[in-house]
Write a protein that binds this DNA or RNA. Sequence first.
DNA 1: GGCGTTTATTAAAACGAATGAATACTGAGG
DNA 2: CCTCAGTATTCATTCGTTTTAATAAACGCC
Lengths: 348, 348
Amino acid sequence: MVTIRDVAKQSGFSSTTVSIVLNNAPLARYIPAVTKKRIESTAKRLSYRPNLFARSLRSRRSHTVGVMVFDMTDPFCTPVLRGIENSLYQASFLPILTDVHNERSRFERYLEMLLDRRVEALIVVANWLFVNIDVLGDLEKSKIPTVMIGRELKNNSISSVIVDNELGAYLGVEHLYSLGHRKIAFLRGPKTLTDSAPRWKGIRSFAKSQGLEIDARLVADLPESRDPNSSFESGYKLTEEMLRTRRPFTALMAFDDMTAFGAMRALTMAGRRVPEQCSVLGFDDIAASSLCTPALTTVRQPMEDMGAMAAGIVLAGINAMREKRRQPATHRRLAPQLAARDSTREAS
Amino acid sequence: MVTIRDVAKQSGFSSTTVSIVLNNAPLARYIPAVTKKRIESTAKRLSYRPNLFARSLRSRRSHTVGVMVFDMTDPFCTPVLRGIENSLYQASFLPILTDVHNERSRFERYLEMLLDRRVEALIVVANWLFVNIDVLGDLEKSKIPTVMIGRELKNNSISSVIVDNELGAYLGVEHLYSLGHRKIAFLRGPKTLTDSAPRWKGIRSFAKSQGLEIDARLVADLPESRDPNSSFESGYKLTEEMLRTRRPFTALMAFDDMTAFGAMRALTMAGRRVPEQCSVLGFDDIAASSLCTPALTTVRQPMEDMGAMAAGIVLAGINAMREKRRQPATHRRLAPQLAARDSTREAS
DNA sequence: GGCGTTTATTAAAACGAATGAATACTGAGG
DNA sequence: CCTCAGTATTCATTCGTTTTAATAAACGCC
């Protein structure tokens, strides 16, 4: 390995000068162009690459960001990760990816590992989250910029990027209502999931404003489960059950896309065609939604943007720290959009 | 920050002894239990955490693996990544994730960044790959253990983990044939994709062995595209076109699941029900396949296993390097399995 | 009591870069 | 001729760990 000293020797200057030139440090302004040229060319000739361990040791910087995902297999994660990756790339930061598997011990272990590596910031994708909240308290202890995607922690120093769940749900029912649906079934999210309540609130808020009647017998809750993919199964079962009770409905609004897929399966199995005999609406707009037939109408979360924005927030936080400014936590609530596709249609 | 010297001072020993004890180095066998106890307890009391920069600088190890994905948004990646993550976690390694976006410049830049960080190995997920192969030559130059998932490079030092495409395709047609289908349409993969040829070979091999006739007018090729999600659109268009030519077929075998989804959409739009009037078969078994209705029958790649196996190979390579053994490249070809679901049915 | 071993511990030298303090060298101004 | 400000460069230290070589004491043995 060629070190800075080799470059120094070969170019005839001291390693200090080489360091100053190559990093374009403040002192570089006193160094004449000839010298710079010579140093740079020998550096290139020897194809010198600074040892980042040494550099990090000295500068206490890693140019690395820790990314903690609570469950990779959740299709929500993929676009978010891409958004993060893209932003970090622009800033020459690299992400270390960890998957918590929704396990407390794994979360703690990974957090420790990341902090040991002196990641300069932390991005937590906490979409499908069943770990006790107090665990997240550990995040505050680390004094590095931290942002959560998909969950807002009040009263603390952690930034957040979430979708406006209430608005999203509102847009969803509105869409169904405007298509003439009045008997709508609702599959609500698990109670312990923070997304569930605001989405329900959005629905009720719309119902109230338009005088839409919500039949309690057409409302069901998904059970809790650590596995985000379980909502397919749950959606299937709940829909099946609802069909059995023979309470009529012309549309179904699911907690998320996965649930909606389960519902569509159940409806189809029961011989009810989507969307002709029953409209189905999801939430998220995961990749599969536009692929299946009929394409799922859903409330779209701007996942890639959320990832990019989260990365942007922590990068700003890193810059703030470097200038010893104290950056307050920022909370972003992004507006979702309705993606009207083929699984919804006028009520007949 | 508390350093090893603090621990030394507090415990009354030298930093050398502390280091030896805490790392359980060979010399530790000469150190009496009392000393160890005292050092360990003060280390814990001060909640000492070794500075990994310093450690890495000295030991030239990063305990980090570089993961390069050619396109994150390809649903093939997610399970692979989880497999990798899980294996690395067991070995206390951490992955740095990079997404090449199928761009040459990005590949080169990322490779440089990863090597600068002294990743101890490289895992390349090269499923949907349109970068010129010679770029991959750069991988060989780095002297670290490297494995490619989804592509085999002959005559070199790079390991590989791939699925047996030929067998998979064979299993696929066999399934359709056994259901009584004789008029089968084929959507082949883009010519430049390495998976395309062996899959077609598997099909031909089965056809030959069973005397199945392949109608050239029922064979179409996906166009090239950098975007793995484009095959949905292509699958749609090609199927539509095939339907227009009115050449009858009772089943369609797609290059991959994404293509199959496009085909299903086209069939449905044309009023042909799946699977009643036409069976559809995919390849990969991405997450969406079991979610859509009808659930897609497909040839399953053991993606998570592939990721885990790739990680296992490079970890073994790392160990070999440490013991200065020269590890030859290993090439694994995993058997796929047919996942029979609801998009295929007996020919009527 | 001298000599080799084993046990217990440490001083000092890496590892490779960044940087504060110091040292020259130039002109300009008095 | 001396000083001062600016220019150009370097010495020596620091970052926090691991490791090599060395030291020192204790032990057994003839």
